[in-house]
Design a protein around this nucleic acid. Structure first.
Lengths: 263, 263
DNA sequence: CGAAAAGTTGATTGTCTTCAAAACTGGTGG
DNA sequence: CCACCAGTTTTGAAGACAATCAACTTTTCG
């Protein structure tokens, strides 16, 4: 089996390379995964040229989603997985009594829609937090091609497994951490993923509101705001509305992983 | 307070059908999924006789795990998925600083080990809460057969998707519910799954400690205990150590889904 | 520009945790 | 068979943390 490193160090990709689509209708444009610079984020590696060419068959179309718009909503029929090309999404589940819980924030190269497989219906909403574009990958086609390309099959399994492991991490966070630790873990995770995509290791723009962060972290928006202020006071971060700079990454790490004696 | 003894009949229905194994070493016995009465829980349905026969190739061996023993631990190499034949497991993740979080409780017919796929290493521990037996399904073999049997491929996808959706539910619970709601949701989920396996709809034996319940629900063990006591006081449940009876399922449901006005 | 949305901050309340002690359970060996 | 012991569970009292309520400021966007 591949002994790729556990955390995949990604070369700083230059993202959002002006799709150069021209005036044609984007919804019908054929997109070549084989020439997409996000490939290494959402597609398997080490394919033969032939397999690479076949991979292009997976993506049927692209689809644009305006900021605030939904890529899918819970209850809708499930047909496709979506690979984010540009933009930023949140996914959230809604309980029967109307409570809302953000289950994740997704960015370029990540796959959403996995929740819909089990019952052929989406069980959460995927909402764009900024104008976005996704690759539509009909799940039937993914399945067919998986049967022929072993690497793709394994890749699909890995993506789903990764999501399960990610959610374990969120459960750890929600289950036992205090507000400051949650926020620190959130920021570190976000900036790490952004850095893997070629962005700064210390500066980021929050695409979501305090309320959405709070929902994700199991906190109220006031608590998120207060925690930001506290961290800023301590010189750990610098916040100006949605622009955030990490001044002391080490301090954030220490917050997430307090020394055993310090508890 | 306690009138009738809270004894839960072991598998009144079809489960655990006297393995008919004979004296041979169980670890080398070939188990036929095609004749396993848990098949409908862990295997796809609607297969042809031929496919059914081939399915038997998936399970290599069985493995017994004593109460308190680990089926696998985080860090161990991943080779196989496990289908629980008998017994009861918990899975838990451990953060760097030693914090522990139970991520789920698993019973007969459920699949564990999915977390190991992404990095070829398990990321959580699976510990038996009572003597247990599992079917060992080498993941390579699952993959191979999936390529040939479409229904199996889809089934694997569904199982992983189901786990993702389940975890969404846990996030909803951990993110926003109060102690009483969490405990109510936990009990309803547990008894529902037990009922699907032929057990009582209202009586159950908790295989885990208050502390393990608390870890799963993001509460301290004292809070779990207090909440049980409170629910018992209110006549919603009856608890005697690990034997529990649900007296008012409707009340539990109402707790989990409070009327919109009660926000 | 002006209204609405988002964010900040303070005061107070409520829920859960923490600390502590006692009671119970189930298993073991005398 | 019973006594005993460790682990588990219950319960009480006090304290901590985040939620809530509220007022105000800033930012965003039509």
């Amino acid at each position: 089996m591949s002994n790729a490193p556990l955390t995949v160090p990604r070369a700083p990709l230059k993202l959002v390379p002006s799709p150069a689509a021209g005036p044609a209708d984007l919804h019908t444009i054929k997109v070549a995964c084989s020439s997409c610079n996000l490939r290494e984020l959402c597609m398997p590696m080490g394919l033969s040229p032939d397999e690479l060419a076949r991979l292009d068959e997976v993506v049927a179309t692209r689809r644009k989603v305006k900021r605030g718009g939904a890529l899918f909503r819970h209850g809708e029929a499930f047909h496709s997985l979506f690979a984010i090309r540009t933009g930023f999404f949140k996914t959230c589940v809604t309980s029967e009594d109307g409570r809302d819980q953000v289950t994740g924030f997704q960015m370029a190269g990540e796959i959403i829609g996995l929740d819909g497989i089990v019952n052929d219906h989406h069980t959460c909403d995927a909402v764009a937090l900024e104008d976005a574009e996704v690759c539509v990958m009909p799940f039937d086609r993914v399945g067919e091609l998986s049967r022929e390309i072993g690497a793709l099959q394994h890749h699909v399994h890995r993506i789903m497994s990764r999501e399960i492991v990610r959610e374990h991490g969120v459960m750890l966070l929600l289950g036992g951490m205090r507000a400051e630790e949650r926020v620190a873990a959130f920021l570190l995770n976000l900036v790490q993923r952004l850095h893997a995509r070629g962005f700064s290791r210390s500066e980021l723009v929050l695409r979501m509101t305090r309320e959405e962060i709070g929902s994700y972290l199991g906190l109220k928006l006031e608590t998120v705001s207060r925690t930001f202020s506290k961290l800023a006071e301590d010189g750990v971060i610098e916040v100006r509305s949605r622009h955030l700079r990490i001044l002391d990454a080490q301090a954030l790490h220490t917050l997430v992983t307090p020394p055993p004696c310090a508890q």
